[in-house]
Simulated scan of single mutants.
Amino acid sequence: MSGLCENRVVIVTGAGRGIGRAHALAFAAEGARVVVNDLGAGLDGSASAEDPAQQVVAEIRDSGGTAVVNGDDVADWQGAQRLIGTALDTFGGLDVLVNNAGFLRDRMLANLGEDEWDAVIRVHLKGHFAPMRHAIEFWRSESKAGRPVDARIINTSSGAGLQGSVGQGNYAAAKAGIAALTLNAAAEFGRYGVTVNAIAPAARTRMTEAAFAATMAKPDSGFDVMAPENVSPLVVWLGSPESRDVTGRVFEVEGGKVALADGWRHGDPIDKGDRWDPAELGVVVQKLIAAADPPVPVYGAK
């Protein structure tokens, strides 16, 4: 390995399994000291007796790396504060925060319950904001004290958040919120030496195997396009000193493909120069739609 993140202190949330586990192992392989955060919860966020974070830490240590477990709930305000404190108390600083934790409670919107909405919005959206908020408190204080900061936040959105996904309205809304939160944080945190980017990954994990079973099969030979380990190289690079000029971007990553997700943009307006009458707007809207590119279809739409 190149040592791209040598001695950088990295937190990865939801790092006990899947993509988060792959991130933690990849950062450690590049010389980072890693805080492996995971509650050990089930796919729907329910309690579990498993301790996958400890297993990941053991893997890292067995390979000669440095890692420590954190089992806090990232969507709990004090829990997120303790998470950042784990990095500061154990390693004396923090360079990279990778927000990855999440779970699913899929249901069509017409049947979605309040608890299913609240739980998914909480773990994804608040579970991104709360660690960010406590991390930037540390980095801002370092910057104001005149100590150089070269820090990174990498958030995890989704194709569902960029295009929507039938049967996942709560998840899509949370992931869309994460994309917007990333742009906002990038604009606000740059003055303190912190970049903020997001990824929208596609890979085979507990969260995706049911929804995409038909397209997630591992090939008989050759490159496993849907392996979660394919996502991590970009995240490691985004967490490295080399990425200091990249911020406020959302990257789609799948297999060997990396692309920029070019989000909402202002379309060319039709300006009357005065208030519209409602009866006039049918023709106007049709002209606007005709001149625009068609939207990307919602996942699962027919």
Rank of each mutant, 00 (worst) to 15 (best):
T205I: 05
L162D: 00
E252D: 14
F138K: 09
V246F: 13
T90D: 09
G190W: 08
N70T: 06
T215H: 05
A292F: 01
V253P: 01
D293A: 10
N7R: 10
D293G: 00
R275T: 11
V296K: 11
N37R: 07
L234K: 11
L162Q: 09
R21T: 07
F103M: 15
A198G: 04
V246W: 11
R140N: 06
I121D: 09
L43R: 14
G31W: 03
G102W: 13
N155I: 00
V284K: 09
V98C: 12
H124I: 12
W264N: 10
L97K: 11
Q78C: 05
V123H: 12
D262A: 14
S165G: 02
R204Y: 13
L43V: 12
A186S: 10
I178W: 09
H128V: 15
A24M: 07
W139E: 02
A58N: 09
D118V: 15
W237G: 10
V196G: 01
M226F: 11
L83C: 06
S240Y: 09
E114R: 15
P201N: 06
G167F: 03
H124P: 11
R244G: 11
R33S: 03
G45Q: 02
E188F: 12
A58W: 02
T205F: 01
M108K: 15
F223T: 06
A227R: 13
V96R: 05
V34D: 00
M132Q: 08
P233Q: 12
L181F: 14
G255H: 09
L25I: 13
S48C: 00
G40S: 06
A53I: 00
S143I: 04
G14Q: 04
R61E: 14
S240K: 11
M216F: 07
A160V: 03
L109E: 14
P131W: 09
D76M: 06
I84L: 04
S157Y: 01
R204H: 13
D73H: 09
E114H: 14
R265S: 15
V194C: 01
P148N: 03
A75C: 07
K144S: 10
S46L: 03
T13S: 07
V225P: 00
N70K: 09
A47H: 02
L183E: 11
L39K: 07
D268H: 11
I11H: 02
A130M: 15
I289E: 06
G64W: 08
L162P: 00
A211L: 12
K218W: 03
G93W: 07
G193M: 07
V74L: 08
L104P: 00
V9N: 03
K144L: 15
P148D: 03
F138E: 14
K175P: 04
V166M: 10
M226T: 12
V123I: 15
A119Q: 14
D293T: 07
D89R: 10
T182N: 05
R61K: 14
W276I: 05
G161R: 01
L238G: 01
N155Y: 04
T247Y: 03
D274A: 12
S243V: 08
D73C: 05
G273V: 12
L281M: 13
V36L: 05
G14R: 00
V258S: 02
L288I: 06
P269I: 10
R140M: 11
